[in-house]
Nucleic acid binder design. Structure first.
Lengths: 196, 196
DNA sequence: CCTCTATGTGGACGTTGTCAACATAGAATC
DNA sequence: GATTCTATGTTGACAACGTCCACATAGAGG
């Protein structure tokens, strides 16, 4: 579907797509307006008809990254096939955490973009999946009511820190085996912290 | 102490100092060679006699940031005045975590630089303080031996995630009161996770 | 006094974000 | 169908950046 007209048709989407690809490949600093335009086959200034500035384009990529994260979490939660309600709730919470880390490791560029200021996207989606999992743990009686408050932040901080350190951080060269074992332990500790 | 000679005398240190100040004020992207030179009162190219490129200068700032973090941790640990060995060990571990987060919040720019690739500094210092605190918890019998392995990462991930989210991340506008309460809860959960 | 080397300067190039002026396609109006 | 309007793309410019090269100079050692 090559366009031939002067007007592109849906340049905005094409630009976002190219920007996402750049973010995926090179992280936040790799999202460069002129390169985005080049890849879209359009002049270096065309993007300014659709985005006020670079930050606005970056913001779009941020949102795509967060949406991907949210989708990954949901997919993993839905795949849980455990009958026992308590075990199912625990397992779902664990899958939420795993999905978070897996996404950060599978898409380090987009993950970095998603959490690189100055304007953050809407993290309602990912946050809601975490909240839902915790609510379920509470409902089935696994999570004591006294521990419900602030539980989101405890979990989020843990998996976010793990993700940051391993995706683009100082632990990025830790071999996969050990990383998996470490993540398993971290999730075990979070589970214990909420249960105890 | 104005220099008058053509040669500066200790330009390298002066450049690092200016770069640190820029990093403190504006974060990693704010460390700009030409601005560093300007603030040091030398030509835009002078830095290349002391650093191969921008990354090498950035790396110096990274190390300064990590040294500051290490010093902050040590200072807080040394101030603990608890007699009971078990309580002292617990308290020291908690202070290590608090120091980490406090530093990240007090110096968001330097903290961001310290954990911004591509080359990371030597985090032996900070890591050692955490290891020491955990070893002490083990020695006094508070931390069960089975939980000792990987305990560093559990703690580090938690405080690092909390720091990232609150210093320059999406939770940076959370009011101080709530942030403090949230940190308290996080440290409580970590304590429980290691004890249980 | 002379030369050598380390260190700082000046100017250049290519890249970036962004602005202003211009051009054109497609829709709206007559 | 011809004309005007507006949304959308293009061209050219500017300043700031990292970096390279040629040059200048200070201070040390002969």
């Amino acid at each position: 579907m090559r366009h031939v007209s002067y007007h592109h048709g849906n340049l905005r989407e094409a630009l976002v797509e190219a920007a996402v690809e750049l973010g995926r490949e090179r992280g936040p600093d790799g999202i460069v307006i002129r390169e985005v335009a080049r890849r879209t086959g359009v002049s270096h200034n065309a993007a300014y008809r659709h985005f006020a500035d670079r930050d606005e384009l970056l913001h779009e990529v941020t949102q795509v990254g967060l949406d991907g994260l949210s989708a990954a979490m949901l997919a993993r939660v839905k795949r849980v096939r455990v009958k026992d309600p308590v075990e199912r709730a625990r397992r779902r919470l664990r899958e939420v955490g795993k999905a978070y880390v897996d996404y950060a490791l599978a898409e380090p560029g987009l993950f970095a973009v998603a959490f690189s200021g100055p304007s953050f996207g809407d993290l309602t989606g990912p946050y809601q999946h975490l909240t839902d999992a915790l609510d379920e743990c509470l409902a089935v009686g696994y999570l004591p009511p006294a521990k419900r408050e602030g539980a989101e932040l405890t979990c989020w901080a843990g998996v976010h820190g793990f993700s940051m350190l391993h995706s683009t951080g100082p632990l990025r060269d830790v071999p996969r085996r050990q990383r998996d074992a470490d993540l398993g332990r971290l999730l075990d500790r979070l589970d214990e912290a909420l249960r105890a």
